[in-house]
Structures are given as C-alpha cells and as structure tokens.
C-alpha cells in the first residue's frame, strides 16, 4: 500500500505524529496527503497555543519577580563560601579573646582563685536577694487578692441586698448578675 492509496490517518496515528513516533508507512502517507496534514496542524494548534501563552505568562512573571529573590539566589549560592569565612572569623575572634585570658591565667593564679571564691558568694547573694524579692512579691499579691475578694464579697452582698430591697429576692439578683 503506498502513501497515495492508504486510508487517511486514524486518531491514534495523529497522536503518534504529535509524539514524533509515527510509523514510516503512515509518515509517507502524511507527506503526500493534504487532508491529513491539515488534520495534524489542527491537532497541533491547541498545544502550540498553550506553549506560547504559558511562556508569555512565565516570562512576564519572571520579569516581575522581585529583584531581591534573584539576589537571594545569588546570595545563597555563595553562602557556603561566606559561611566558611564567617567560621574562620569567629575562630580568630575566639583566639583573640582566649589568648589574653590564658596569659592572665598563667600570671595570676592567686588572683583568679580569689575571683573564683568571690563568684559563688555574689551568686548566692543574688539568689537570696531574688528569693526574698519573690517572697515579697508573693506576699503582696496574696494581700491584693485577699483585699479584692473581700471587696467582691461585700459588694456582692451589697448588690444582693439592694436588689432584695427593691423587690423579689434571689431571682432578680441572679438576673442582674447574669
């Protein structure tokens, strides 16, 4: 069967053509058949449209992408190198701090021991002071709470009494409180 005598392409073969996987015989027919060529163009049109429109959409979205995002990408890309420099800088700084301290340690062990002895005392004083402060605060809070509750009880009693004086007892009092 030659290209001229072969039947027109089936839907399946049009799909094959779109996928670039058309058998040689069908491809031969397609090359010489204007009807099938037209059918293939029509089949390809929505796909080409989708491709063009989505690329236009994507290019526009990329163009309006905040510059900071690209900067961040570049920043992240060189981030590891920067982190390495950062680590080195921290190490140097630590060395600069540690070196005089070490020399000081070597020269004045007695001085350091007195400092060491003074430190727990200062710390314990601070702890005691803060414990006292906490006790004091707690006591003050307790007093405030007691005072408030006594006020509340008396005001409730007064309120009940006033309502009771006005009319019909508990029912009205409950309504007002609600």
């Amino acid at each position: 069967m030659t290209g001229a005598t072969m039947n027109h392409l089936t839907d399946e073969q049009i799909d094959d053509a779109l996928l670039g996987d058309l058998a040689a015989e069908a491809a031969g027919h397609l090359a010489s058949c204007a009807v099938c060529q037209q059918q293939l163009i029509a089949a390809r049109m929505p796909l080409e449209s989708f491709k063009a429109v989505t690329l236009a959409w994507s290019e526009r979205r990329s163009a309006t992408m905040p510059a900071s995002l690209q900067e961040r990408m570049l920043h992240n890309a060189s981030g590891s190198r920067r982190r390495a420099w950062g680590t080195a800088a921290v190490a140097v700084l630590a060395l600069m701090v540690a070196l005089p301290f070490g020399m000081h340690h070597a020269n004045g062990v007695r001085e350091q021991s007195s400092t060491q002895a003074a430190a727990p005392i200062a710390q314990s004083l601070q702890t005691e002071a803060s414990a006292e402060q906490i006790d004091s605060d707690n006591q003050m809070l307790h007093e405030i709470e007691t005072e408030l509750s006594s006020n509340r009880t008396s005001s409730e009693a007064m309120e009940l009494q006033e309502i009771g004086d006005q009319g019909d007892g508990h029912g009205s009092a409950r309504m007002v409180r609600d």
């Binding site: 929505p46 449209s49 989708f50 063009a52």
Partner: peptide, 8 residues
C-alpha cells in the same frame, strides 16, 4: 489562541 490554551 487564548481559548485553546485555556482548554489545554
């Protein structure tokens, strides 16, 4: 083109 793209 827009219509076809939306269909896809």
């Amino acid at each position: 083109v827009q219509e076809k793209a939306q269909q896809v």
